[in-house]
């Protein structure tokens, strides 16, 4: 079997397997799987509203996935995407309402602020890792909690002990009346364009620039890179900063697109953690991340329609988890396929 064919077959088979096991779960618990999957399908592609909602859900996943993937490619495990996203969200929401500027300056400024905030939040673990060899996993996890509670405190102080910031001005918004009428107020926004551009930018940095080559080299082998004359420390910091900037942009999508403000959060949004799964699904490649985010976002948004036909949220979560489980364990299917094709060749 050709390599290309296997590459396409593996994810397809994984999704089908996941759906099959999900169907069994629904059958066993007394729900109609056909009805359930039709609801899932309609929840993703049913009409303009659901398509818009699916795209909106995919947008932050792309950026969070890119953030994790970029760090991964440079040998770093950035679990702090969640915290960097919250800081980006806060920064964009603040710039969005605190300044009154023409849209052509305001919107880029708010987006830039989010990227900077995310980058700054990732700079700290990067610096600690480079200078003091503190493991980035520990630092980034802890930075998540700091981000959550710092953001909550800031929101409460700027909104005078309320629980949310004022809405951003129109000039900083990614939403448009055109998209709202087209998709029946699905809250879809132009952030998807930014996310897609970032996919290309990440590919460009990693594959087409000298810096990108150095970053990847540091990821493969720090000692060899140092021996080759690269500055390992500055590369580690730079990798974290770029990763954090992607995460901050994901936050900007929430601030300037979906919500228009930031509310006191009782817990994490989960987007940053889902970003880890998205990056793994996409094999840490920019375009792979895009596909991973599409799958993840579509399942996540489409599944919201399943309770509408009477399937409880808990069952829905199990089914979605199963699909992702099978996709993530694609390696097993790959081995099976290779065995099968070898047998055929032997005959």
């Amino acid at each position: 079997m050709s390599n290309k064919l296997t590459n396409i077959l593996v994810p397809v088979i994984s999704v089908i397997l996941g759906l099959l096991v999900g169907a069994i779960v629904m059958l066993v618990s007394g729900y109609d799987p056909v009805q359930g999957y039709i609801a899932l399908w309609e929840g993703i592609f049913g009409d303009m509203f659901t398509i818009g909602g699916t795209i909106r859900q995919i947008t932050p996943y792309i950026l969070a996935g890119l953030a994790v993937a970029f760090a991964f490619r440079t040998g770093l495990f950035n679990i702090g995407v969640e915290g960097q996203l919250i800081m980006g969200w806060l920064a964009a929401a603040y710039v969005g309402y605190a300044f009154e500027l023409p849209a052509i300056i305001h919107l880029p400024l708010a987006i830039l602020a989010a990227a900077l905030a995310g980058a700054l939040w990732a700079f700290i673990p990067g610096l600690l890792k480079a200078k003091l060899q503190v493991h980035e996993v520990i630092v980034t996890i802890m930075m998540n909690y700091i981000a959550l509670h710092v953001a909550n405190a800031v929101i409460q102080s700027i909104s005078d002990s309320g629980e949310k910031t004022p809405m951003i001005h129109e000039s900083a918004s990614l939403r448009s009346t055109f998209l709202d009428t087209l998709t029946d107020y699905s809250r879809m926004h132009y952030g998807i364009v930014i996310a897609l551009i970032m996919v290309v930018i990440m590919w460009f940095i990693l594959e087409k620039t000298k810096r990108g080559f150095e970053l990847k080299a540091v990821g493969f082998n720090q000692n060899a890179s140092e021996y080759a004359g690269m500055n390992v420390k500055s590369n580690i910091i730079l990798a974290m900063v770029i990763s954090g900037a992607f995460a901050g942009l994901a936050g900007a999508m929430e601030a300037l697109g979906t919500f228009g403000n930031i509310t006191v959060q009782a817990g994490f949004t989960g987007i940053g953690f889902d970003g880890i799964a998205v990056a793994l699904l996409g094999a840490n490649a920019p375009f792979g991340v895009l596909l991973g985010a599409i799958l993840f976002g579509a399942l996540k948004f489409g599944s919201l329609n399943m309770p509408n036909v009477g399937i409880p949220v808990e069952i829905v979560s199990i089914i979605i988890a199963l699909v992702i489980f099978f996709v993530a364990s694609g390696y097993i299917i790959r081995v099976l396929l290779e065995r099968l094709s070898k047998k055929k060749e032997a005959k």
Partner: peptide, 20 residues
């Protein structure tokens, strides 16, 4: 009823109920 698992779902769930 519909249950929300995250704050981004409030809007969708309300709209879904309206569509029903």
């Amino acid at each position: 009823y519909l249950q929300s698992a995250s704050s981004s779902e409030y809007n969708t769930n309300l709209t879904n109920m309206n569509r029903r």
